[in-house]
Design a protein around this nucleic acid. Structure first.
Lengths: 202, 202
DNA sequence: CCTACCGATCGGTAGG
DNA sequence: CCTACCGATCGGTAGG
Protein backbone atom coordinates (compact mmCIF):
# COMPACT_ATOMS: atom_id res chain seq x y z
CA UNK A 1 0.00 0.00 0.00
CA UNK A 2 1.59 3.21 -1.17
CA UNK A 3 1.11 6.43 0.71
CA UNK A 4 3.76 8.33 -1.24
CA UNK A 5 2.59 11.76 -2.41
CA UNK A 6 5.04 11.99 -5.32
CA UNK A 7 6.36 9.44 -7.80
CA UNK A 8 9.92 10.28 -6.74
CA UNK A 9 8.99 9.31 -3.19
CA UNK A 10 7.32 6.11 -4.39
CA UNK A 11 10.40 5.13 -6.37
CA UNK A 12 12.93 6.20 -3.71
CA UNK A 13 13.88 2.61 -2.87
CA UNK A 14 14.75 1.64 -6.45
CA UNK A 15 18.23 1.77 -8.02
CA UNK A 16 19.12 5.21 -9.35
CA UNK A 17 19.24 3.93 -12.94
CA UNK A 18 15.75 2.45 -12.67
CA UNK A 19 14.48 5.76 -11.30
CA UNK A 20 16.01 7.64 -14.22
CA UNK A 21 14.38 5.26 -16.69
CA UNK A 22 11.00 5.68 -15.02
CA UNK A 23 11.21 9.47 -15.10
CA UNK A 24 12.40 9.44 -18.71
CA UNK A 25 9.56 7.08 -19.61
CA UNK A 26 6.98 9.18 -17.81
CA UNK A 27 8.06 12.28 -19.72
CA UNK A 28 8.30 10.74 -23.20
CA UNK A 29 5.10 8.71 -22.84
CA UNK A 30 3.32 11.90 -21.78
CA UNK A 31 4.65 13.80 -24.79
CA UNK A 32 4.46 11.22 -27.57
CA UNK A 33 2.33 8.42 -26.18
CA UNK A 34 3.35 4.83 -25.50
CA UNK A 35 3.46 3.68 -29.12
CA UNK A 36 5.09 6.93 -30.18
CA UNK A 37 7.99 6.34 -27.82
CA UNK A 38 10.81 3.87 -28.50
CA UNK A 39 12.76 2.10 -25.77
CA UNK A 40 15.86 3.71 -27.30
CA UNK A 41 14.39 7.20 -26.83
CA UNK A 42 13.71 6.48 -23.17
CA UNK A 43 17.19 5.04 -22.59
CA UNK A 44 18.81 7.99 -24.34
CA UNK A 45 16.83 10.48 -22.24
CA UNK A 46 17.99 8.60 -19.15
CA UNK A 47 21.57 8.75 -20.43
CA UNK A 48 21.97 5.03 -20.99
CA UNK A 49 22.44 2.47 -23.73
CA UNK A 50 19.38 1.00 -25.51
CA UNK A 51 19.75 -2.31 -23.67
CA UNK A 52 19.92 -0.82 -20.17
CA UNK A 53 16.14 -0.64 -19.87
CA UNK A 54 15.94 -4.44 -19.92
CA UNK A 55 18.18 -4.69 -16.86
CA UNK A 56 15.32 -3.24 -14.77
CA UNK A 57 12.12 -4.04 -16.66
CA UNK A 58 11.22 -7.26 -18.50
CA UNK A 59 9.41 -5.38 -21.28
CA UNK A 60 8.50 -1.88 -22.39
CA UNK A 61 4.94 -2.58 -21.27
CA UNK A 62 6.12 -3.37 -17.72
CA UNK A 63 7.80 0.03 -17.58
CA UNK A 64 4.53 1.66 -18.63
CA UNK A 65 2.64 -0.32 -16.01
CA UNK A 66 5.02 0.70 -13.22
CA UNK A 67 4.59 4.36 -14.20
CA UNK A 68 0.81 4.11 -14.53
CA UNK A 69 0.40 2.15 -11.30
CA UNK A 70 2.47 4.60 -9.28
CA UNK A 71 0.64 7.51 -10.88
CA UNK A 72 -2.74 6.09 -9.92
CA UNK A 73 -1.59 5.45 -6.35
CA UNK A 74 -0.04 8.90 -5.90
CA UNK A 75 -3.22 10.53 -7.22
CA UNK A 76 -5.41 8.52 -4.84
CA UNK A 77 -3.05 9.19 -1.91
CA UNK A 78 -3.19 12.95 -2.57
CA UNK A 79 -6.96 12.93 -2.78
CA UNK A 80 -7.22 11.05 0.53
CA UNK A 81 -4.67 13.30 2.22
CA UNK A 82 -6.56 16.39 1.07
CA UNK A 83 -9.87 15.03 2.35
CA UNK A 84 -8.33 14.05 5.68
CA UNK A 85 -6.87 17.53 6.10
CA UNK A 86 -10.25 19.10 5.31
CA UNK A 87 -11.99 17.58 8.33
CA UNK A 88 -15.54 16.21 8.59
CA UNK A 89 -17.59 18.84 6.75
CA UNK A 90 -18.79 17.32 3.42
CA UNK A 91 -18.48 20.58 1.46
CA UNK A 92 -14.93 21.06 2.68
CA UNK A 93 -14.10 17.42 1.89
CA UNK A 94 -15.47 17.49 -1.66
CA UNK A 95 -13.80 20.83 -2.30
CA UNK A 96 -10.47 19.43 -1.07
CA UNK A 97 -10.77 16.31 -3.24
CA UNK A 98 -11.61 18.23 -6.41
CA UNK A 99 -8.87 20.76 -5.71
CA UNK A 100 -6.26 18.04 -5.15
CA UNK A 101 -7.29 16.13 -8.26
CA UNK A 102 -7.31 19.21 -10.52
CA UNK A 103 -3.93 20.27 -9.15
CA UNK A 104 -2.53 16.81 -9.84
CA UNK A 105 -3.81 16.75 -13.43
CA UNK A 106 -2.43 20.23 -14.15
CA UNK A 107 0.93 20.05 -12.38
CA UNK A 108 1.65 16.50 -13.51
CA UNK A 109 -0.14 16.62 -16.85
CA UNK A 110 2.48 14.46 -18.55
CA UNK A 111 2.04 11.69 -15.99
CA UNK A 112 -1.71 12.22 -15.93
CA UNK A 113 -2.00 11.84 -19.71
CA UNK A 114 -0.13 8.57 -19.53
CA UNK A 115 -2.44 7.37 -16.76
CA UNK A 116 -5.62 8.37 -18.51
CA UNK A 117 -4.94 7.76 -22.19
CA UNK A 118 -2.50 4.85 -22.33
CA UNK A 119 -4.80 2.48 -20.51
CA UNK A 120 -5.61 0.56 -23.74
CA UNK A 121 -1.87 0.00 -24.33
CA UNK A 122 -1.59 -2.11 -21.18
CA UNK A 123 -2.01 -5.88 -20.88
CA UNK A 124 -5.47 -6.99 -19.67
CA UNK A 125 -4.11 -8.02 -16.23
CA UNK A 126 -2.50 -4.64 -15.77
CA UNK A 127 -5.63 -2.83 -16.93
CA UNK A 128 -7.64 -4.65 -14.30
CA UNK A 129 -5.21 -3.73 -11.51
CA UNK A 130 -5.47 -0.04 -12.41
CA UNK A 131 -9.23 -0.16 -12.81
CA UNK A 132 -9.44 -1.19 -9.16
CA UNK A 133 -7.55 1.92 -8.02
CA UNK A 134 -9.72 4.08 -10.28
CA UNK A 135 -12.89 2.66 -8.84
CA UNK A 136 -11.61 3.14 -5.29
CA UNK A 137 -10.77 6.77 -6.06
CA UNK A 138 -14.14 7.42 -7.63
CA UNK A 139 -15.95 5.70 -4.74
CA UNK A 140 -14.02 7.84 -2.29
CA UNK A 141 -15.33 10.97 -4.00
CA UNK A 142 -18.83 9.51 -4.38
CA UNK A 143 -18.89 8.74 -0.62
CA UNK A 144 -18.01 12.34 0.20
CA UNK A 145 -20.79 13.52 -2.11
CA UNK A 146 -23.25 11.12 -0.47
CA UNK A 147 -22.30 12.43 2.98
CA UNK A 148 -23.17 15.90 1.73
CA UNK A 149 -26.52 14.68 0.50
CA UNK A 150 -27.23 13.18 3.94
CA UNK A 151 -26.28 16.42 5.68
CA UNK A 152 -28.40 18.50 3.31
CA UNK A 153 -25.40 20.37 1.90
CA UNK A 154 -25.77 18.80 -1.56
CA UNK A 155 -28.72 17.77 -3.69
CA UNK A 156 -27.62 16.17 -6.95
CA UNK A 157 -30.08 13.91 -8.77
CA UNK A 158 -27.66 11.03 -8.51
CA UNK A 159 -24.51 11.07 -6.36
CA UNK A 160 -22.40 8.57 -8.37
CA UNK A 161 -23.14 10.37 -11.64
CA UNK A 162 -22.23 13.72 -10.10
CA UNK A 163 -19.00 12.19 -8.75
CA UNK A 164 -18.15 10.81 -12.18
CA UNK A 165 -18.73 14.23 -13.70
CA UNK A 166 -16.46 15.89 -11.14
CA UNK A 167 -13.70 13.38 -11.89
CA UNK A 168 -14.15 14.11 -15.60
CA UNK A 169 -13.69 17.80 -14.94
CA UNK A 170 -10.38 17.14 -13.18
CA UNK A 171 -9.12 14.51 -15.61
CA UNK A 172 -9.78 16.59 -18.72
CA UNK A 173 -7.46 19.30 -17.40
CA UNK A 174 -4.53 17.03 -18.31
CA UNK A 175 -5.68 17.08 -21.95
CA UNK A 176 -5.64 20.83 -22.50
CA UNK A 177 -3.26 22.12 -19.83
CA UNK A 178 -1.21 24.24 -20.32
CA UNK A 179 -2.44 25.29 -23.80
CA UNK A 180 -5.45 27.29 -22.60
CA UNK A 181 -5.48 30.80 -21.14
CA UNK A 182 -2.62 31.87 -18.91
CA UNK A 183 -3.80 30.52 -15.60
CA UNK A 184 -1.79 28.72 -12.97
CA UNK A 185 -2.70 25.24 -11.72
CA UNK A 186 -3.75 26.86 -8.43
CA UNK A 187 -6.10 29.29 -10.17
CA UNK A 188 -7.66 26.51 -12.24
CA UNK A 189 -8.08 24.33 -9.15
CA UNK A 190 -9.79 27.17 -7.30
CA UNK A 191 -12.34 27.92 -10.01
CA UNK A 192 -13.05 24.23 -10.69
CA UNK A 193 -13.57 23.62 -6.99
CA UNK A 194 -16.09 26.43 -7.00
CA UNK A 195 -17.84 24.99 -10.05
CA UNK A 196 -18.04 21.61 -8.31
CA UNK A 197 -19.80 23.09 -5.27
CA UNK A 198 -22.18 25.04 -7.52
CA UNK A 199 -23.08 21.84 -9.31
CA UNK A 200 -23.82 19.99 -6.05
CA UNK A 201 -25.67 22.65 -4.03
CA UNK A 202 -29.42 22.19 -3.44
CA UNK B 1 -17.62 24.94 -45.28
CA UNK B 2 -18.97 21.63 -44.12
CA UNK B 3 -22.50 21.31 -42.79
CA UNK B 4 -22.52 17.52 -42.88
CA UNK B 5 -23.90 15.92 -39.71
CA UNK B 6 -22.07 12.60 -40.18
CA UNK B 7 -18.63 11.72 -41.47
CA UNK B 8 -20.21 9.46 -44.09
CA UNK B 9 -22.12 12.46 -45.41
CA UNK B 10 -18.97 14.58 -45.38
CA UNK B 11 -17.05 11.96 -47.36
CA UNK B 12 -19.89 11.11 -49.76
CA UNK B 13 -18.17 12.80 -52.70
CA UNK B 14 -14.93 10.79 -52.37
CA UNK B 15 -14.09 7.54 -54.21
CA UNK B 16 -15.50 4.45 -52.48
CA UNK B 17 -12.00 3.14 -51.75
CA UNK B 18 -10.97 6.39 -50.06
CA UNK B 19 -14.12 6.26 -47.95
CA UNK B 20 -13.35 2.73 -46.85
CA UNK B 21 -9.81 3.73 -45.88
CA UNK B 22 -11.09 6.69 -43.86
CA UNK B 23 -13.60 4.56 -41.98
CA UNK B 24 -11.00 1.84 -41.35
CA UNK B 25 -8.54 4.49 -40.14
CA UNK B 26 -11.11 6.10 -37.88
CA UNK B 27 -11.86 2.76 -36.23
CA UNK B 28 -8.27 1.57 -35.78
CA UNK B 29 -6.94 4.96 -34.64
CA UNK B 30 -9.75 5.08 -32.09
CA UNK B 31 -8.93 1.60 -30.80
CA UNK B 32 -5.12 1.58 -30.86
CA UNK B 33 -4.11 5.19 -31.37
CA UNK B 34 -2.25 6.71 -34.32
CA UNK B 35 1.18 5.30 -33.49
CA UNK B 36 -0.35 1.97 -32.51
CA UNK B 37 -1.89 1.58 -35.96
CA UNK B 38 0.07 0.56 -39.06
CA UNK B 39 -0.88 1.61 -42.58
CA UNK B 40 -1.05 -2.12 -43.35
CA UNK B 41 -3.65 -2.68 -40.61
CA UNK B 42 -5.81 0.11 -42.03
CA UNK B 43 -5.53 -1.19 -45.59
CA UNK B 44 -6.33 -4.73 -44.48
CA UNK B 45 -9.43 -3.54 -42.59
CA UNK B 46 -10.51 -1.72 -45.73
CA UNK B 47 -9.91 -4.90 -47.75
CA UNK B 48 -7.00 -3.55 -49.79
CA UNK B 49 -3.29 -4.04 -50.35
CA UNK B 50 -0.80 -2.17 -48.13
CA UNK B 51 0.06 0.25 -50.93
CA UNK B 52 -3.52 1.26 -51.74
CA UNK B 53 -3.62 3.88 -49.00
CA UNK B 54 -1.00 5.92 -50.86
CA UNK B 55 -3.24 6.19 -53.92
CA UNK B 56 -5.55 8.48 -51.92
CA UNK B 57 -3.41 10.04 -49.19
CA UNK B 58 0.17 11.33 -49.47
CA UNK B 59 1.08 10.09 -45.98
CA UNK B 60 -0.40 8.32 -42.99
CA UNK B 61 -0.50 11.68 -41.21
CA UNK B 62 -2.66 13.16 -43.99
CA UNK B 63 -5.18 10.37 -43.47
CA UNK B 64 -5.28 11.18 -39.74
CA UNK B 65 -5.75 14.88 -40.51
CA UNK B 66 -8.65 14.23 -42.88
CA UNK B 67 -10.36 12.11 -40.20
CA UNK B 68 -9.69 14.61 -37.41
CA UNK B 69 -10.72 17.62 -39.51
CA UNK B 70 -14.00 16.03 -40.57
CA UNK B 71 -14.67 14.91 -37.01
CA UNK B 72 -14.18 18.43 -35.68
CA UNK B 73 -16.46 19.88 -38.35
CA UNK B 74 -19.21 17.31 -37.84
CA UNK B 75 -19.13 17.92 -34.08
CA UNK B 76 -19.37 21.69 -34.55
CA UNK B 77 -22.15 21.31 -37.13
CA UNK B 78 -24.18 19.12 -34.76
CA UNK B 79 -23.74 21.56 -31.91
CA UNK B 80 -24.91 24.46 -34.11
CA UNK B 81 -27.85 22.49 -35.49
CA UNK B 82 -28.96 21.55 -31.98
CA UNK B 83 -28.74 25.17 -30.80
CA UNK B 84 -30.65 26.41 -33.85
CA UNK B 85 -33.40 23.88 -33.26
CA UNK B 86 -33.64 24.91 -29.59
CA UNK B 87 -34.72 28.46 -30.39
CA UNK B 88 -33.74 31.69 -28.61
CA UNK B 89 -34.03 30.73 -24.93
CA UNK B 90 -30.48 30.57 -23.45
CA UNK B 91 -31.24 27.64 -21.13
CA UNK B 92 -32.70 25.64 -23.99
CA UNK B 93 -29.74 26.54 -26.20
CA UNK B 94 -27.07 25.53 -23.68
CA UNK B 95 -28.96 22.34 -22.87
CA UNK B 96 -29.16 21.48 -26.57
CA UNK B 97 -25.44 22.14 -27.10
CA UNK B 98 -24.32 20.02 -24.14
CA UNK B 99 -26.73 17.25 -25.11
CA UNK B 100 -25.50 17.19 -28.72
CA UNK B 101 -21.86 17.21 -27.67
CA UNK B 102 -22.25 14.44 -25.08
CA UNK B 103 -24.20 12.34 -27.58
CA UNK B 104 -21.45 12.82 -30.15
CA UNK B 105 -18.68 11.82 -27.75
CA UNK B 106 -20.59 8.69 -26.61
CA UNK B 107 -22.00 7.47 -29.92
CA UNK B 108 -18.83 8.23 -31.86
CA UNK B 109 -16.31 7.59 -29.10
CA UNK B 110 -13.79 6.04 -31.44
CA UNK B 111 -13.78 9.12 -33.68
CA UNK B 112 -13.94 11.40 -30.65
CA UNK B 113 -10.87 9.78 -29.06
CA UNK B 114 -8.93 10.31 -32.25
CA UNK B 115 -10.01 13.94 -32.36
CA UNK B 116 -9.19 14.64 -28.74
CA UNK B 117 -6.10 12.53 -28.04
CA UNK B 118 -4.21 12.32 -31.32
CA UNK B 119 -3.80 16.05 -31.66
CA UNK B 120 -0.08 15.87 -30.74
CA UNK B 121 0.48 13.32 -33.53
CA UNK B 122 -0.44 15.89 -36.19
CA UNK B 123 1.91 18.27 -38.02
CA UNK B 124 2.00 21.83 -36.57
CA UNK B 125 0.06 23.26 -39.54
CA UNK B 126 -2.67 20.69 -39.12
CA UNK B 127 -2.81 21.25 -35.37
CA UNK B 128 -3.38 24.95 -35.96
CA UNK B 129 -6.23 24.30 -38.41
CA UNK B 130 -8.04 22.10 -35.89
CA UNK B 131 -7.38 24.50 -33.03
CA UNK B 132 -9.38 27.11 -34.93
CA UNK B 133 -12.43 24.83 -35.14
CA UNK B 134 -12.09 23.97 -31.45
CA UNK B 135 -11.97 27.63 -30.48
CA UNK B 136 -15.00 28.39 -32.65
CA UNK B 137 -16.93 25.55 -31.02
CA UNK B 138 -15.98 26.66 -27.53
CA UNK B 139 -16.84 30.29 -28.32
CA UNK B 140 -20.21 29.19 -29.62
CA UNK B 141 -20.97 27.56 -26.28
CA UNK B 142 -19.47 30.47 -24.33
CA UNK B 143 -21.72 32.90 -26.24
CA UNK B 144 -24.80 30.89 -25.32
CA UNK B 145 -23.72 30.93 -21.68
CA UNK B 146 -23.13 34.69 -21.84
CA UNK B 147 -26.62 35.21 -23.28
CA UNK B 148 -27.97 33.34 -20.28
CA UNK B 149 -26.01 35.58 -17.93
CA UNK B 150 -27.50 38.64 -19.66
CA UNK B 151 -31.02 37.27 -19.36
CA UNK B 152 -30.53 36.35 -15.71
CA UNK B 153 -30.96 32.62 -16.32
CA UNK B 154 -27.32 31.86 -15.46
CA UNK B 155 -24.87 33.25 -12.93
CA UNK B 156 -21.47 31.57 -13.21
CA UNK B 157 -18.43 33.44 -11.86
CA UNK B 158 -16.85 33.42 -15.28
CA UNK B 159 -18.68 32.42 -18.46
CA UNK B 160 -15.67 31.23 -20.51
CA UNK B 161 -14.41 29.06 -17.63
CA UNK B 162 -17.85 27.54 -17.18
CA UNK B 163 -18.06 26.87 -20.93
CA UNK B 164 -14.64 25.19 -20.86
CA UNK B 165 -15.78 23.00 -17.97
CA UNK B 166 -18.95 21.99 -19.84
CA UNK B 167 -16.88 21.03 -22.89
CA UNK B 168 -14.61 18.98 -20.62
CA UNK B 169 -17.61 17.11 -19.28
CA UNK B 170 -18.69 16.16 -22.80
CA UNK B 171 -15.21 15.37 -24.11
CA UNK B 172 -14.27 13.11 -21.22
CA UNK B 173 -17.23 10.84 -22.03
CA UNK B 174 -15.23 9.56 -25.02
CA UNK B 175 -12.49 8.37 -22.63
CA UNK B 176 -14.62 6.12 -20.43
CA UNK B 177 -17.62 5.27 -22.62
CA UNK B 178 -18.81 2.53 -22.81
CA UNK B 179 -16.87 0.97 -19.89
CA UNK B 180 -18.91 2.58 -17.10
CA UNK B 181 -22.34 1.56 -15.85
CA UNK B 182 -24.90 0.31 -18.33
CA UNK B 183 -26.35 3.55 -19.52
CA UNK B 184 -27.20 4.53 -23.06
CA UNK B 185 -25.73 7.60 -24.76
CA UNK B 186 -29.16 9.22 -24.51
CA UNK B 187 -29.37 8.63 -20.74
CA UNK B 188 -25.87 10.01 -20.22
CA UNK B 189 -26.64 13.04 -22.36
CA UNK B 190 -29.79 13.73 -20.37
CA UNK B 191 -28.13 13.61 -16.95
CA UNK B 192 -25.11 15.63 -18.11
CA UNK B 193 -27.40 18.28 -19.60
CA UNK B 194 -29.12 18.51 -16.25
CA UNK B 195 -25.76 18.80 -14.45
CA UNK B 196 -24.77 21.60 -16.82
CA UNK B 197 -27.87 23.66 -16.03
CA UNK B 198 -27.38 23.06 -12.28
CA UNK B 199 -23.84 24.34 -12.58
CA UNK B 200 -24.94 27.52 -14.37
CA UNK B 201 -28.10 28.48 -12.44
CA UNK B 202 -27.97 31.57 -10.18
C1' DC C 1 25.40 -1.70 -17.95
C1' DC C 2 27.52 -1.75 -22.91
C1' DT C 3 28.43 -3.44 -27.85
C1' DA C 4 26.70 -5.88 -31.31
C1' DC C 5 23.19 -8.10 -33.26
C1' DC C 6 18.51 -10.71 -34.20
C1' DG C 7 14.04 -11.14 -36.88
C1' DA C 8 10.01 -8.46 -37.54
C1' DT C 9 7.70 -4.62 -38.91
C1' DC C 10 7.42 0.03 -40.10
C1' DG C 11 6.14 4.12 -43.69
C1' DG C 12 6.63 4.69 -48.20
C1' DT C 13 7.99 3.80 -53.37
C1' DA C 14 9.06 1.58 -58.12
C1' DG C 15 7.09 -0.24 -61.73
C1' DG C 16 3.71 -2.03 -63.85
C1' DC D 1 -4.92 -0.76 -57.21
C1' DC D 2 -1.41 -4.84 -56.72
C1' DT D 3 3.30 -7.22 -56.20
C1' DA D 4 7.59 -6.66 -54.76
C1' DC D 5 10.78 -4.20 -52.56
C1' DC D 6 13.56 -0.23 -50.11
C1' DG D 7 16.13 1.62 -45.94
C1' DA D 8 15.09 2.60 -41.28
C1' DT D 9 13.66 1.48 -36.95
C1' DC D 10 11.41 -1.32 -33.78
C1' DG D 11 11.39 -4.48 -29.18
C1' DG D 12 14.26 -7.51 -27.34
C1' DT D 13 18.56 -10.74 -26.64
C1' DA D 14 23.46 -12.86 -26.60
C1' DG D 15 27.48 -12.50 -24.57
C1' DG D 16 30.49 -10.48 -22.10
Amino acid sequence: MSTALTVEEAWAGLPATAQRLLVAGLETFGENGYHGTSTRAIAQRAGMSPAALYMHFPTKEDLLFEIARTGHEVHFARVRAAADAAGPDPSARVAAIVEASVLFHAEHHSLARTIQYEHPSLAPDHQRALLKIRRDTESFLADAVTEGVASGAFAPDDAPTAALALMSLAIDVARWYPSQRRRSPTQIATSYTHLALRLLRP
